[in-house]
Every structure is written in structure tokens, then in C-alpha cells.
Design a protein around this nucleic acid. Structure first.
Length: 811
RNA sequence: GCGGACAUGGCGAAACUGGUAGACGCAAGGGACUUAAAAUCCCUCGGUGGCAACACUAUGCGGGUUCGACCCCCGCUGUCCGCACCA
């Protein structure tokens, strides 16, 4: 017979704030730099202060908090800080729309979001909070910028940019939609502007090879970075130009190729429309000039590239084949050759490159196979494919129709051509040299915007570009700016940009570009290690002790840009003496998105989950609108977004169920790297478990704890075994960030305990086993549901805080 | 086009290094308690057959390796993601 027992329900709304106050009063999560324990640095990607946290934040920070709390219990000195990625365009947009200052908007958002994060019960060291828009932060970023300048890592050069003529600003590629500015809708122009660049390409080789050392990064992210860097090994090859046809001043054409082995299959040359040779040839040829203009207008948008045909224009210039002086090839201007990659010029080998083949077929150029698959007959293969190929053979094989290369593998032929041409010279220089090339380009950091870190340089007519001396830093953003007209408010400001030259004292002009906000997030993890240092960006003893971040957690959307820039910036900091580490993040975890069902009315309008009531039975689920009871179509499960209105507000969930329930649900069910589907049923399930865990602890507390030595019987031993099995499972799975499995282990233990408790008053050995199991149970729960576990810890008569208890010993 | 990942009940998933497929949760169905509801508790829950013990079958599809395959190999199909004329 089940005993009649009345337990009060666990009241999260009362308990959660109470425990947070106790943690704060005991400074539980304050981290000292001189703590002797081994260090562990866990970091979640800091948020942009948009105004409110969303469920993605809840998932991200719940995961990080589990790791932080677990590592603390394992005896580590854990650094778990939080800050704000606070510069950026939304603040300026808000300023334009609402006539509020970006700083006012940003700081009020930070205050609101900080309160929300606090309500989650995260074990963060708020003493180290930083905001990138704070002059006490960007002062050091400016100091590093001048150090980077001195170290030759910063460059000012002319570059093509997307220019919005209405907003008078540069747009990133992502901000150009169908050739128009995302905000103004104006046709975007390609404009050449002098811009600031970080020389990330200086580290291309190292950023690529060091990926091999990042064994605790997802393979997917490493691969994406490897592709982005795009390392290739090839040959820089100089072709002589036929003097009779070449424009004045052009005697040769240099190309980059990764396939010198296919040189005998060449049938044309091609240069980019912006190539100097194209420009020179166009001067005397209006039709060619028109063709080049047309290519430029096509622009670089992905949509136009997809459908663009291979188009070219014969310049009339002839190039001399480097292995056969009697062989002259036509030089085309072609729309598929990019000025930005290699030398902006190629030789075309149609048989072994699909683009070249398409081009050759369009302009009736010869197609000569020079590589065939192993085992084929050379003559038969040639006859079958010559001038009639549809699909280029771009793989390895055996050389044919290639004179001294015939019979070699492609690999051997590459080496043979490279060696022979390196030994030959033209104008006193070798014809060819081996060259490692990268797709990666330098990082353009100039933004014609107000709400960003000012680039700390001064332009002087006599001295040129002069960095602002460190004693004059920070270059602070002016407060009194207006957003009533397009363009850069810093440029419009009546006095800000007028200054005197730091070296000669004459009147000079302050740089009005601000830095890309990716710069701000490229070193914040280093600043967290000693945010109190006013003199310099980092303190060697702190930054070198804490870095690298042991576990970094964030969204996959930052797989390339943020993580690559941070890897570069860390190396630049190393070069300039601000740290001695190269890789900022030892372990990386990319979590999945939070998704939710969508709801659409018959009229086609999206409805929020809060406006919906669900009915479900054996026939399935149906949705009804609360206001008028009409049936609503249940749509696809999609990423939570404002446009589909399928969002759930963390405040509502925490207010209704408590932070622990929200955290528990976020960690259960789906593997953390996959998307998690937020459902009302799932939250209620999590909430039921909170009450069940509470009941288990309350019921256990009614039975006596062990005194003296105990002989455990078979049933009590089984319970103890279940408890330690759960302990082993959770320990392993937290280490591997498999939180969904942790949840399952805990459920299994709770089922075992419920089964024992249902049998009524236990024998002394079972009572002792129950207390042991409950103690383990609460400790396993503690990293995930910290408030509830403190309350349970208390009801079981345990001393101290579970948040300070060491991880249980496995038996 | 190139590169990569994934595919298991009604659903989210688990199965560790090749060794009892479906742990755990959700949904659903049945029952207990209740005036009723909520909450709680008990039972069932991949499919087919059987009162049952149980038998057969089952991890996208087709082959293969193995005493043994969700797991390894080959070939398909589908879904998702990244890059996108990179010479």
C-alpha cells in the first residue's frame, strides 16, 4: 500500500531568486587569477545586445553552464565570464528610427538582457563583464591596432567595394541583395576606395596547417576553414607575347596554374576584364572596351554567376607557348577569370577543365586530350575525345600527346614541367617558379559607420598616415552626432575629425573609418583574463595562464569569419607581445538551433505559439486559435524567427516554469549539435520531472540516514549500483558534451529510486542506500538544474551548498 | 558544379571499439484514485501471427565481408549544410 504523504510542490518562483542571492552573497562564481587549482576556461560566444535574449541564447548558455559547474565540482579553477558584443549597425538603425543615441539604446539593452541572463541562474563571474563599446575596452583595441601597424600587419590600399549611393556607405557582400542595398534598395555600385586591411594572408599557411592541431574542433568547421583558406600548389608561369600583336609595354603574360602537366593541351589564354593587358588592348578597341564594361556590370553577385555563360572577346594578342616557340595561342578577355585570384590570367586547357571546355566549345577552340585514365589506349582515347569532349577529365591519369611527358603520371609530369621551365629563363629570370597560392584575401576592416571602434590614425599632409600615440588613446567617439542624413556621422561632425598631427603639430585630419565589429570579438576572450588592467590590453601572467579557452561554445554560423579572425588576431597579439599563445580556442563545440512548429491561419497570417491551443488524440494533432476557436494549419518546424512568429520568449518560460525547467528541456532529448524542437509538451514534461525529483528527495528525507556500518542486501545493492552507474554515465557524457545522454542516465536513476520509494517504509540498509542514491542524484542534477538541487540538498539535510560540493566518488 | 554530413517506432532519440536494436523522454491507448478535473500511480506501446510462452520480421534501397552488421566495404536514393567560375 502506498503511503499517504503530502509534499508541498516545489515552487521555482520562490526558490530560484533565493538561491541566486545566496550564491551572490557567497561570491560562488567569482574567479581569482592567483588561485592555485588547475585552470579551466569555458566560454560561450558573447551576445549582441539586441534587446532581449532568445531561446538560442538559453540553449547556448545552459550548455556552457553545465560544463562550468561540472568542472568546478571536479576541482578546477573555472573562468566563466560574460560580456557584450556591443558595437554594430542595429544601434545606428535604432538611432535613425527612434531618435535615440546608439549608446543609450545599447546600454539599456544590456541592462535588460543582463537581468534575463541572471534569471537563468548561470554561474558567471559578472565582475569581469565587458562591453566592446566601452572606451575602457576599445582603448586597448586601438593600442593593439597601432602595434599591428608597427609590425606591418596593417595595410591601407585601394580596393573595390560595394557602394550604396543613397546611404553613402560601403556594404558588405551579405548586405547586397540582388544587386541592391539591403536598406535603401538602391542599385549598388562598384567603387574603388582606400580601405584599411588586416594582413591575414601573412598567416594563411600557418592558419591552414595549424588546423591539424585543433583536434577538439568539429571536423566540419576545420574543413570549412580549410576550404575558405583554399591553399593550392602550382606554378607561376611567364608566357612571352608575340611582339607584333601585343599592346605597347607588354612583352609577357604571367599566369598561375595548378596543372602545368596539361600544358600541351592548352588552346587559349584568358585574362580578367580588369587585367592591365585587357585595359591596354581595350584602349584601341571600342568593342573590347564595351565587352569589359559589360563584364563589370555583371558584378559579383552569386545569382548572376550561377547562370552566367562563358563569354570572351579575342584581343588579337598572341602568346608564345613556353615549351614550343612556334606555337602561338590567342589571348581572350573572359568573364570567368577573376582579377582577385592568382594573376588574373590563365591558360585554358579545355580537355581537363570544365570551364575551359565550355569556353572552347562556345568559341570553336581546339580540344586536345593530354591525360587519359590508366589502362586506356592512347590513340583510341584521343580519337574518341578530340574536339568532341562534353565532360572534362579533371582527375589524375597517364600523360598522352605531350612529347617528353608521354607515359608519365600527372604528378611526375607536373614536376618535370616545373623543373624544365624553372631552368629556362626569359629576360634574365626563370620562366617558371613553384608557388603556393591561397584563396584567402586580406581582411577589410574599414566601415564608414559611427557605432564602432575608431581607427586610431591621423592623416597629415606632411607626415602622411600617423598612428595616434598611445598616450592619446582612446580616440573616443563623439557623443553629439546626428543621424539625419546619409553617410558617416563621424565625417559630418563639425569638429571631431579636425586635429593636429602628433609628429609635426600641423593641422591634420582624423581617420573617420571605424573598425569592423569582427575586430571587437577577435580578442574579448583575452580581455576577460584581466579586464581590470587599464594600462595594456592584457596582463602576461593572466592571459598566458588562462588561454587557450578550453571549451568554446557557439553557433555554427561563426565557423569561418569569427573563428578565423580570432585565430589571426591571437597570432598578431603574439607577434606584438600581447600573449604567447597562437590558438585561442582549444575545444570548440557548435550547438544546433532551436526550432519550433509554425502556425498559419486560413487568411495566411502567421500566429505565435501563445495564440494557439493544441488538441491531440490518436488521430493526430490539431491547432485552434484561442481568440475565436477557428482551426489553424500546423506548418513546418523551422528556426525560431520573428517573420514566422514561431518564437517563444525565455522570460515567459522562466516566469511560468522556472529557469531549471527551461534549462533541463534545452539539454534533454536532442543531441546538442543538432536542432532541438521546442514544444509545449516537452516543457511540461521537464516541469513534471522537476516536481518528481523534488518528491523523491522529500520522501527519502523522511527515512533515517545511515549510522555505523551497514550490510547491504541484494535490493539495496541494486539501488546503489544504479546510482553509481548513473554517476559513471553522467561523468563520461558531460565530458563529451552529450547532455541528452546525461539526462537519460538521470531519468534511469530516478526511476530506480521511485520504484523503491513506492514500496513503502524501507529496511535500514535500503534507507541508507536511498540516501546515498539521493545524494548522487542531486549532484548529477546540480550542473543542469542548480536551483532545484540546492533546495533538495537542503531538504536532505546536507551541509553547505551543492554548488560547492566536490563531484561524488565513483564506487 | 565542388566539398561535407545525415537517414533507426507516431515523434525526439539510444545502442560505447562489430556482440540482446529501440535505453530515456514525448505523444497515444487502457486502468486506479476523485463528485469532477488537475496532479499522482499502474499497465500497453516497431510490424505480423498467437490467449500465451513464443515465432517470424524490422535500422532509407541493392549487394558484399563476417560465426555475428544500425555499425565495416561497394553501388544507389533522399534530406540538410558549406563554398560557389579560385585556374
Amino acid at each position: 500500500m502506498r503511503q499517504e504523504r503530502e509534499h508541498t510542490r516545489y515552487n521555482a518562483r520562490e526558490a530560484e531568486p533565493k538561491w541566486r542571492t545566496i550564491w551572490d552573497e557567497n561570491k560562488l562564481f567569482q574567479t581569482l587569477n592567483d588561485d592555485p587549482r588547475p585552470k579551466y576556461y569555458v566560454l560561450e560566444m558573447f551576445p549582441y545586445p539586441s534587446g532581449r535574449i532568445h531561446m538560442g541564447h538559453v540553449r547556448n548558455y545552459a550548455m556552457g553552464d553545465v560544463v562550468a559547474r561540472y568542472k568546478r565540482a571536479r576541482g578546477f579553477n573555472v573562468l566563466h565570464p560574460m560580456g557584450w558584443d556591443a558595437f554594430g549597425m542595429p544601434a545606428e538603425n535604432a538611432a535613425m528610427q527612434n531618435n535615440t543615441h546608439p549608446a543609450t539604446w545599447t546600454y539599456s539593452n544590456i541592462a535588460a538582457m543582463k537581468a534575463q541572463l541572471k534569471s537563468m541562474g548561470l554561474s558567471l563571474d559578472w565582475e569581469r563583464e565587458i562591453a566592446t563599446c566601452d572606451p575602457r575596452y576599445y582603448k586597448h583595441q586601438q593600442a593593439m591596432f597601432t602595434d599591428f601597424m608597427a609590425a606591418g600587419l596593417v595595410e591601407r590600399k585601394i580596393s573595390k567595394v560595394n557602394w550604396d549611393p543613397v546611404d553613402q556607405t560601403v556594404l558588405a557582400n551579405e548586405q547586397v541583395i540582388d544587386g541592391r542595398g539591403w536598406r535603401s534598395g538602391a542599385l549598388v555600385e562598384q567603387k574603388e576606395l582606400t580601405q584599411w586591411f588586416m594582413k591575414i594572408t601573412d598567416y594563411a599557411e600557418e592558419l591552414n596547417t595549424a588546423l591539424d592541431t585543433l583536434t577538439r574542433w568539429p571536423e566540419k568547421v576545420r574543413l570549412m576553414q580549410r576550404n575558405w583558406i583554399g591553399r593550392s600548389e602550382g606554378l607561376m608561369l611567364r608566357w612571352a607575347l608575340d611582339a607584333a600583336t601585343a599592346p605597347k609595354g607588354f612583352s609577357e603574360l604571367e599566369v598561375y596554374t595548378t596543372r602545368p602537366d596539361t600544358l600541351f593541351g592548352a588552346s587559349f589564354m584568358a585574362v580578367a576584364p580588369d587585367h592591365p593587358l585587357a585595359r591596354a588592348a581595350a584602349e584601341k578597341n571600342p568593342a573590347l572596351a564595351a565587352f569589359c564594361d559589360e563584364c563589370r556590370r555583371m558584378g559579383t553577385s552569386a545569382a548572376t554567376l550561377e547562370t552566367a555563360e562563358k563569354k570572351g572577346f579575342d584581343t588579337g594578342v598572341k602568346a608564345v607557348h613556353p615549351l614550343d616557340p612556334s606555337w602561338h595561342l590567342p589571348v581572350y578577355v573572359a568573364n570567368f577569370v577573376l582579377m582577385e585570384y592568382g594573376t588574373g590570367a590563365i591558360f585554358g586547357c579545355p580537355a581537363h577543365d570544365q570551364r575551359d571546355l565550355d569556353f572552347a566549345n562556345a568559341y570553336a577552340l581546339p580540344v586536345q586530350p593530354v591525360v587519359m585514365p590508366t589502362g586506356e589506349d592512347a590513340l583510341a582515347y584521343t580519337l574518341a575525345n578530340k574536339d568532341s569532349m562534353k565532360v572534362a577529365l579533371d582527375g589524375d591519369g597517364v600523360m598522352i600527346n605531350s612529347h617528353f611527358l608521354d607515359g608519365m603520371t600527372t604528378e611526375a609530369a607536373f614536376a618535370a614541367v616545373a623543373d624544365r621551365l624553372a631552368a629556362e629563363s626569359m629576360g634574365g629570370q626563370p620562366i617558371a617558379r613553384r608557388k603556393v597560392n591561397f584563396r584567402l584575401r586580406d581582411w577589410g576592416i574599414s566601415r564608414q559607420r559611427y557605432w564602432g571602434c575608431p581607427i586610431p590614425v591621423i592623416h597629415c599632409e606632411s607626415c602622411g598616415v600617423v598612428p595616434v600615440p598611445k598616450k592619446d588613446l582612446p580616440v573616443v567617439l563623439p557623443q553629439d552626432v546626428t543621424f539625419d542624413r546619409p553617410g558617416n556621422p563621424l565625417d559630418h561632425h563639425p569638429s571631431w575629425k579636425h586635429c593636429s598631427c602628433p609628429s609635426c603639430g600641423k593641422k591634420a585630419r582624423r581617420e573617420t573609418d571605424t573598425m569592423d565589429t569582427f575586430g571587437d570579438s577577435s580578442w574579448y576572450f583575452a580581455r576577460f583574463t584581466d579586464p581590470w588592467n587599464e594600462e595594456s590590453p592584457t596582463t602576461p601572467s593572466a592571459v598566458n595562464a588562462w588561454l587557450p579557452v578550453n571549451q568554446y561554445i557557439g553557433g555554427i554560423e561563426h565557423a569561418i569569419l569569427h573563428l578565423l579572425y580570432a585565430r589571426f588576431w591571437t597570432r598578431a597579439m603574439h607577434k606584438t607581445g600581447h600573449t604567447s599563445v597562437d590558438e585561442p580556442f582549444e575545444g570548440l563545440f557548435t550547438q544546433g538551433m532551436v526550432v519550433h512548429e509554425t502556425y498559419k491561419s486560413a487568411a495566411g497570417e502567421w500566429l505565435t505559439p501563445a495564440e494557439i491551443r493544441i488538441e491531440s488524440d490518436a488521430n493526430g494533432r490539431r491547432a485552434f486559435r484561442l481568440s475565436n476557436n477557428t482551426e489553424i494549419t500546423i506548418g513546418d518546424i523551422e528556426k525560431m524567427s520573428k517573420s514566422k512568429r514561431n518564437t517563444v520568449d525565455p522570460d515567459d518560460i522562466i516566469g511560468t516554469y522556472g529557469a531549471d525547467t527551461a534549462r533541463w528541456f534545452m539539454l534533454s532529448d536532442s543531441p546538442p549539435e543538432r536542432d532541438v524542437n521546442w514544444t509545449e509538451d516537452g516543457v511540461q514534461g521537464a516541469s513534471r520531472f522537476v516536481q518528481r525529483a523534488w518528491r523523491i528527495c522529500c520522501e527519502t528525507a523522511e527515512f533515517p540516514q545511515a549510522t555505523g556500518s551497514i550490510d547491504f542486501g541484494s535490493e539495496s545493492t541494486a539501488l546503489r549500483r544504479a546510482a553509481h552507474k548513473a554517476l559513471a554515465g553522467v561523468t563520461e557524457d558531460v565530458e563529451r558534451l552529450r547532455f541528452n545522454r546525461c539526462v537519460a542516465h538521470i531519468y534511469e536513476l530516478s526511476n530506480a529510486m521511485s520504484g523503491v520509494l513506492a514500496k513503502g517504509k524501507p529496511a535500514p540498509d535500503m534507507s541508507a542506500a536511498l540516501h546515498e542514491a539521493a545524494s548522487i542524484f542531486i549532484q548529477l542534477l546540480a550542473p543542469m538544474m542548480p536551483h532545484l538541487s540546492e533546495e533538495c540538498w537542503l531538504v536532505l539535510g546536507k551541509s553547505g551548498l551543492v554548488g560547492q560540493a566536490p563531484w561524488p566518488q565513483l564506487d
